[in-house]
Nucleic acid binder design. Structure first.
Lengths: 233, 233
DNA sequence: CATTAACTGTGAAATTTTTCACAATTATTT
DNA sequence: AAATAATTGTGAAAAATTTCACAGTTAATG
């Protein structure tokens, strides 16, 4: 539709995380933050944050921002209330990332991990709507007390199609992960967040996959530690 | 110690994930893979994989690899058994990333998420040793049946120091996350993998933090979907 | 009201990372 | 034994991303 210029991937990912942080800061009752503060909180250099934020300029409205007009959201200067106003910054990032209208999600696999995610507060906040959760065990389904509609796994395709579910969160055992992913894809899912310890293969390039891997994180951490050790001695 | 040239971060992170994948492929009984296959499996272009792998050359041994000697691990040519031999490639990556000697880890917080991680097979594989898990609830500690030593949270600092635990995995409720992280840092932890839905602030630059955030992943996914929607219509 | 201090915003430079393109290699086929 | 097909490895070019440095802004201070 809008042919908004697309963001550089690293910027997009940092903004997506920043968006979460801004919500937290708002809940703490703050009004504004500086790029320096955000830098400390996020572990990203302050100039990188300002640069990222400068992408919000594009498509800010119909006002012709020619030349050296005032363009940004941030308020320069010292003293309280300077920096970026939380409220408007958050709205702006939300608009840029398309986080304004709610997305539907489903959760597949109600083991310990699945239940942990089922109980997350994020589903109460309204931005993401968990409209279904699936499991193989009838027993499990009956035992769980939640407001989220629960279904037997055999109903996966039907429910995903019916509610046009966009995002699938995979918390099934590793053996079942690939097959479940295939089923989600066939049912028309648009994105998958995979918590199962497998490397998913999804051919369709219409479907985005984010792998969250404990083993991967451990390896990355170890490798950085190892590099540190090389340097420090 | 070794002053090994440090890897570009994107390469390091891809190799760390590749290492996991190679283990899986080995378990499937395969002997070798091509960069093209890895490309499909990992969703990374094949030339990027080959380039990444080319960093393994450095410090491959004392052989002086002058000129156009045979240097790589991969076997060119067509037919079965061509490409990269899984075994030796995995060993080489492991050596480069310092994944050869086991690392100690602890798990803090034994709610649903914690227990899910406690039961992961990775702790049986020998590369990472989960030497302690903590929780506040005595009840919970008694109920759990596992070979991993369980402790009350009050013993955190003592146990971390005693066993020189390097990596902490945080699966506590959000309210407790920052304080727990502070305690881990004070006790001398070297890295933290944070699964709690908060943005941790860790001043010490001796300590590495990896945040695993459902909200972050959801936002990233949504943003990419939104960009796709802009293009497709 | 001039000065100071603490910020933002950004074009341009520097750096890093990815992509390209193709020579070299080797099993398999003809 | 020549041709073919599939594959690695890598310098060099291209592209992307980060860093720099500083002009411009504004509340607070002296």
């Amino acid at each position: 539709m809008k042919k908004d210029s697309t963001l550089p991937p690293p910027t997009l990912e940092r903004l997506a995380r920043l968006y979460v942080l801004l919500g937290k800061l708002q809940n703490q009752g703050l009004q504004a933050v500086s790029s320096k503060r955000l830098s400390e909180l996020l572990g990203v250099p302050d100039h990188t944050i300002r640069k990222d934020l400068s992408f919000l300029r594009e498509g800010l409205g119909t006002e012709q921002l020619t030349g050296k007009e005032k363009t940004g959201v941030g308020k320069p200067g010292s003293g309280l209330g300077r920096g970026y106003p939380l409220e408007s910054l958050r709205v702006l990032i939300g608009a840029k990332l398309g986080l304004t209208h709610p997305r539907t999600a489903c959760l597949v696999g109600l083991g310990n991990l699945g239940v942990a995610i089922l109980n997350r507060r994020i589903w109460q906040e309204g931005v993401y709507r968990l409209v279904a959760a699936f499991d193989l065990s009838e027993n499990r389904l009956e035992l769980l007390s939640t407001k989220i509609p629960l279904y037997h796994a055999r109903e996966l395709e039907g429910v995903v199609r019916k509610y046009r579910i966009e995002i699938g969160i995979l918390t099934v055992p590793p053996e079942a992960a690939q097959e479940t992913a295939d089923r989600l894809v066939r049912a028309g899912i648009r994105g998958i967040i995979n918590f199962a310890p497998v490397v998913l293969t999804v051919k369709s390039n219409r479907v985005l996959v984010r792998n969250v891997s404990l083993a991967g994180e451990l390896n990355i951490l170890s490798a950085y530690l190892y590099q540190q050790e090389d340097v420090d001695g």
